[in-house]
Design a protein around this nucleic acid. Sequence first.
DNA 1: CATTTCACCTGGTGGC
DNA 2: TGCCACCAGGTGAAAT
Length: 284
Amino acid sequence: MPELPEVETIARGVDKRIRGDRIVQVWFSRHPQPFKTPRARQAKGLSGRAILAVHRTGKHIVFELSPLTSAPDAHEREALRPCAQWIVHLGMTGRLLVATPESPVAPHTHARLSLESGLELRFVDPRRFGRLEFRDLHRQAAFGAPGDEPLSIGQREFASLFRGRRLSIKAALLNQTLLAGVGNIYADESLFNAGIRPRRRADRLTLIELERLRLALREILTHAILLGGSSVSDYVGADGERGFFQLEHCVYQRTSEPCRRCQTPIRRVIVAGRGTHYCPKCQR
DNA sequence: CATTTCACCTGGTGGC
DNA sequence: TGCCACCAGGTGAAAT
């Protein structure tokens, strides 16, 4: 399941390969679910625009797009101000691939963007939990994740996110309107790292515990980005390469295996409706 | 309003 | 070997 490090890895890979390229033709599947913006308006909006940059916000990949009539030269495109955005959320099983047009089209391909360079950007998503959205910045506000970025939030703001919240700390970490980008893997891993049980009420954590959690989150996410994310189930980057952070998981999907710190078997419970892994000895 | 539950999906798994 | 019930989980809507 792509979370912040996986989405960051993919956004960087896509940016590197197609920044400055131009969308010349768009094909979409007939399934309605992935299209947050109606298919026809989305296809019309994308066609003819240059891709100025690709970056991540929370778990979303944002394509900054040029105006429809723009400089023909790739150098001049860099200087253009974005006039539209294409926003991709990968859901559970979504993938963005940069391919050549003749390479076989995977099952469950929902979008194919033909580029001026001859390359093709594809969105593949078997479960169809992913979403594609188009924004015309003359008519709509630029995309902004509602929650704060866990990599840049400071000590005070982090602590204030959880004040007066009676839900579990795990549920709070998964809430994208508080923090943007944390999913099941990194919630479990950061709580282990900070020595906090997932079921603890968010508003009962001490300031010291909250700060341990913020630093654990920052460290784990940064390290995971460095390793190209966690390849569990079928996640791969834009070039089809796997990440390596799954090898460093301490609790996630390690049920009954010995804790890396104290050898106690890792426990699995359901918290906030999600499979949740923790060490009963290291986490209080 | 805050919080919890559920539906949406398909591929992989495990039981028989 | 083959079939099938079951489960994973990000998100948003519905329920509490």
